[in-house]
């Protein structure tokens, strides 16, 4: 049961992220929700790759034990970088929209519609 705990945390965090995106009207808060969702994806990946008692595959003076292929960790690092880039881009858009529209509420950012 205890090993399942991280997955529960993933679902919970993802739920918070999705709820933020759906319920909050403020663009900055929505981007924050997206960040939370990215975090839950990262947690999910890292949890998948965790092997109890495994060691990192660095051969120089490696201790005894089972080496773990670190694909998932690499994926997580990549996703953190991608998440950083998207958040930066989205925040830049939010700044630009605030300058042009004078608001970051999604209710006001709908000049393109119908």
């Amino acid at each position: 049961m205890l090993t399942q705990l991280p997955y529960l945390a993933v679902v919970l965090i993802a739920g918070i992220g999705i709820a933020t995106i759906l319920l909050k009207k403020n663009l900055i808060k929505m981007i924050m929700g997206l960040g939370v969702l990215t975090g839950s994806a990262n947690l999910f990946l890292v949890t998948l790759g965790y092997r109890d008692g495994g060691i990192a595959p660095i051969y120089t003076s490696a201790p005894e034990g089972v080496m773990v292929l670190s694909t998932v960790q690499a994926m997580t690092v990549t996703n953190i970088v991608i998440g950083f880039a998207t958040t930066a881009l989205l925040l830049a858009f939010a700044i630009m929209l605030y300058r042009k529209y004078g608001s970051v509420e999604t209710g006001d950012i709908r000049r393109l519609r119908e």
Binding site: L22, L27, R110, R113
Partner: peptide, 17 residues
């Protein structure tokens, strides 16, 4: 049909989910 295209990002996400 036309009013469904609200242009509101929250609604877009709601449709997706």
């Amino acid at each position: 049909l036309v009013p469904v295209h609200t242009g509101d990002l929250n609604d877009y996400m709601l449709w997706y989910f």
